[in-house]
C-alpha cells in the first residue's frame, strides 16, 4: 500500500489535555474566590496537614518495613520470562518464602514485574494497570525484552524498553533470567526500599 514509510515510529499516546492558549489555566472568577476565602479554613487545613505529616513521619518506618517484606507482585505473564516467573513460585525455588505472593488484581499489588516483551498494542493496558495499582508501588523490568527490547528491539511492534512507559526500579538481565535471578532482583528491590527510609 504505502511505497515508503517510517513504519515503526509508533508513538506513546499520553493523555495530553488540549488547552486553548488564549484562556488562562485557572478561571479568574475562581482565583478571586480563593483570595476572598476566610482565613479560618486555611489555618484548619495547615493544622491537619501538620498532624498528617507528623503521623506519616512516625509510621513511615513501620510501613516501609511491612511493605518491603511483603511485596505483592501482579500475577500476569507476558512472554518467556513469565514461565520462569512461574517456576520461581514452584516447588524448587518457592518465592513465597520471601513474602512475595502474586495477586491477580492490580488493586492488591504494590509490585509490577514486567516479565516479557511489551508491544505498542499492549502499552495502553500496561499503563492502565500501573495506574490502577495503589501507592507506594515499584516496578521491575525482568529480562532483556522489558529492559531494552531484547532480540525484538528492531521489530515494528515492540516497545524498546518498558522504561519508556513506566518508571522502573530494578532491571534483571537475562533472556530469560533464571528464577534465582528473579528472586535476587526482588531482594535488591527490598534493599532499595529499606535505604529510601532515611
Amino acid at each position: 500500500m504505502n511505497a515508503t514509510n517510517t513504519s515503526g515510529t509508533a508513538r506513546i499516546i499520553t493523555h495530553v489535555k488540549e488547552t486553548d492558549p488564549m484562556e488562562p489555566e485557572v478561571p479568574f472568577a475562581e482565583v478571586e474566590a480563593v483570595q476572598s476565602k476566610e482565613y479560618i479554613p486555611v489555618i484548619k487545613e495547615t493544622l491537619t496537614g501538620m498532624i498528617q505529616r507528623g503521623l506519616d513521619a512516625a509510621t513511615k518506618p513501620v510501613f516501609n518495613w511491612a511493605g518491603r517484606n511483603s511485596l505483592f507482585p501482579l500475577h500476569w505473564g507476558l512472554a518467556c520470562c513469565a514461565i520462569e516467573f512461574a517456576a520461581g513460585f514452584g516447588a524448587r525455588w518457592d518465592g513465597e518464602r520471601f513474602g512475595v505472593v502474586p495477586r491477580s488484581s492490580p488493586r492488591q499489588c504494590d509490585l509490577l514485574i514486567v516479565n516479557g516483551t511489551v508491544t505498542w498494542k499492549l502499552s495502553h493496558k500496561l499503563i492502565t494497570l500501573w495506574e490502577q495499582m495503589p501507592e507506594p508501588k515499584w516496578a521491575i523490568a525482568m529480562g532483556n525484552c522489558a529492559t531494552g527490547g531484547g532480540p525484538f528491539r528492531t521489530a515494528y511492534s515492540v516497545v524498546p524498553g518498558v522504561n519508556k512507559l513506566i518508571p522502573v526500579d530494578v532491571y534483571i538481565a537475562g533472556c530469560p533470567p533464571r528464577p534465582e535471578a528473579m528472586l535476587d532482583g526482588i531482594l535488591r528491590l527490598e534493599r532499595l526500599i529499606r535505604e529510601r527510609r532515611a
Partner: peptide, 11 residues
Amino acid sequence: IGYLHRGIEKI
C-alpha cells in the same frame, strides 16, 4: 490476540 506480536516473521 496480537498483544505479543513481535514481528518474528519480519525479523
